[in-house]
Design a protein around this nucleic acid. Sequence first.
RNA 1: GGCGGGAUGGCUGAGCGGUUGAAAGCGCCGCACUCGAAAUGCGGUGUCUUCGCAAGAGGACCGGGGGUUCGAAUCCUCCUCCCGCCGCCA
Length: 433
Amino acid sequence: MLDIKFIRENADKVKEAAKNKNNKVDIDQLLKLDEEKRGLQVEIDNLRAKRNELAKQNKSGKPTDEQIKQGKELKTEVSGKEEELKKINKEYAKLIYSVPNLISKDTPIGPDESGNKVIRKFGEPAKFKFKPKDHMELGILLGIIETEKSAKISGARFNYLFSGAVLLQFALIQFVFDTLTNEKIIKQLAKKVGNPSNKPFTPVIPPVIAKSEIMKKMDRFEPLEDRYYLEQDDSLLIGSAEHTLGPLHMNEVIDEKNLPIRYIGYSTAFRREAGTYGKDATGILRRHQFDKAEMESFTAPEHGLSEQNLIVAIQEYLVQQLEIPHQVVAICSGDMGKPDFRQIDIECWMPGQNKYRETHTSDYMTDYQARRLNIKYQAKGGKKEYVHMNDATAFAMGRILIAILENYQQEDGSVVVPKALRKYMPGNIKIIK
RNA sequence: GGCGGGAUGGCUGAGCGGUUGAAAGCGCCGCACUCGAAAUGCGGUGUCUUCGCAAGAGGACCGGGGGUUCGAAUCCUCCUCCCGCCGCCA
């Protein structure tokens, strides 16, 4: 949510950002309602002032019949206006919540993913002396990915992982937690991007269910058809650890000396993937359930952008340690999320599909989420302000698994394990006969 | 799931339906004392919002929603969460 005062004073900017994000919110209607709302509020406040005055007249004694009569009249008048205000408020709330965040200056303007821009590339797509298999062929061959039984038992877009794939996942988790809690590495990356804080990340295992009201505050409730909704409890299964890490400091005022707050959470993520039938149908690229390590960070506004730069540097470091060719992509206005101010993705090379595919994303939300979650910070002697929030993938297990399997495959179908992971598991995944 | 007790400012914690936006303590800020600090003393310390250049004035907020009343932190009701006991359970 944006500040209504800001919208009032910068209507043009807000309209332009909305247009670039393909968002059809009617800003003029919002401003009209805002004006009506305030006018009515003044009328109500004046009537209440009268009522308070009247009540003050007989603080201790009993009121006269005349005073009771006046009070009753005021009451009906106020409640009539309040009813009217409630109606306006409802419509107003709907509108203001649908206003998207502004976009950063360096965000490319574009209608959809065709407008995304590759900022930099690392490594060259590997040349194979044989025709590389895709991860699903490898998974079946190695006996580590199973999707037929899971389809019968759980439905489409689920899977079983076995043996080497499981060890690989746990190795990745161990690797990512070791890296993000290592102050030396954070320091080195922070220095590189000019981020003033070397603070390592705090590991978290968050809940995987969030109440509807919380998801609304996170601006992640919609589209509801993409969420698993638990009717009995008016709650949802989270689509990312972000959904329960973001609200961790809801309604708090954080002392500035405790900023930045950095979390690395690990959880299962659930997505209904409504409207994607037929898209990426085979393999484990697009699943209803996958595990993910997710970064979430809270900073003072002036450090929000360099925090995102640090986070992207961490993502790059992680895939570079795995030695997977990848590119960093600036997501354009039309392809980014409504709460995003700036979105950067990382796409890893996937030989089996012969293209780069998204494995990481990084969202800088400015104070868009913090405003509804009511998360503020206070500087010494300073004013309270909303914090800025960043969230980003560290590793999304399905996708990074694909990148490893496809990039590290051998001619016989076995897979060599990346060096960075060898201290956590055996050095290769072999075909089990 | 059953029964009982709670939710008040940054924190702890008072609060007969009408001088309670809210006692007291802690914390925090300023000043005094001190070479400095501690201790002590004095003063100040909520958020949001409307009008206003400002000074200031008004309104809302005591977990959340609804209600009773001339008047609600205080009474009723629903919801959420916390604590205790019983039941069930990884």
